[in-house]
Computed example of a mutant assay.
Amino acid sequence: MEISVYSIAKNKDGFGIEEYIKMAQKYAKIEDVILFNNKIAKAQSISKDESLRCYDEIYASRISGFCIGLDERGKLFDSQEFAKLLDSKAKISFFIGGAYGLSSEFKSKMDMIISLSSLTLAHKVAKLVLYEQIFRGLCINAGHPYHK
């Protein structure tokens, strides 16, 4: 199984994400892809619409496998349901939007839109929660006692 997490950020997030990636490697190949360039930086200073267009452009070539977009208005899952979402898929791609989220057009290309919480989360916190839930879901599917 391959899992790719795509995010738009100025720098590597840290926040303990590397630990979850390392622990999850025994169950799946995990790829953390952080995208940012001068075009995005400029677009974010111009407008929301221009930013969303740039996000779409940079993400378009990365759509592969079962694609999941993160959005605060997406479907909420508990950990057991999230584990089922991961089960029996060869490749999953998660997309985390930039400062303005993901465009409606890009979200329409996703197989599913999910929410990690009803709360609004900072980008780094959302990414950490996603990685923890990926690890937890893989453990549930493998019968590992991490999830109690």
Rank of each mutant, 00 (worst) to 15 (best):
residue 4 S to T: 15
residue 7 S to C: 13
residue 8 I to P: 00
residue 9 A to F: 04
residue 10 K to C: 06
residue 10 K to S: 11
residue 11 N to S: 15
residue 13 D to T: 14
residue 13 D to H: 03
residue 16 G to P: 05
residue 19 E to S: 14
residue 20 Y to S: 13
residue 20 Y to A: 14
residue 22 K to Q: 15
residue 23 M to Y: 07
residue 26 K to V: 14
residue 26 K to N: 10
residue 27 Y to H: 09
residue 29 K to V: 08
residue 30 I to L: 10
residue 32 D to E: 13
residue 35 L to F: 06
residue 35 L to S: 04
residue 36 F to R: 04
residue 36 F to T: 06
residue 42 K to N: 09
residue 45 S to D: 13
residue 45 S to H: 11
residue 49 D to M: 01
residue 49 D to P: 00
residue 49 D to Q: 09
residue 51 S to M: 02
residue 51 S to C: 06
residue 53 R to E: 13
residue 55 Y to W: 06
residue 57 E to M: 05
residue 58 I to Q: 03
residue 64 S to V: 04
residue 64 S to A: 11
residue 68 I to C: 02
residue 70 L to Q: 03
residue 72 E to G: 04
residue 72 E to S: 08
residue 73 R to C: 12
residue 74 G to T: 08
residue 76 L to A: 11
residue 79 S to N: 15
residue 82 F to Y: 08
residue 83 A to V: 03
residue 84 K to E: 15
residue 86 L to T: 02
residue 87 D to W: 04
residue 89 K to N: 07
residue 89 K to T: 08
residue 91 K to I: 06
residue 91 K to N: 13
residue 98 G to L: 01
residue 98 G to S: 04
residue 103 S to F: 04
residue 104 S to Q: 12
residue 105 E to S: 12
residue 110 M to E: 07
residue 110 M to N: 04
residue 115 S to F: 04
residue 120 T to F: 05
residue 124 K to M: 11
residue 128 L to G: 05
residue 131 Y to H: 13
residue 135 F to V: 05
residue 137 G to L: 03
residue 137 G to C: 07
residue 141 N to V: 12
residue 142 A to S: 14
residue 144 H to L: 08
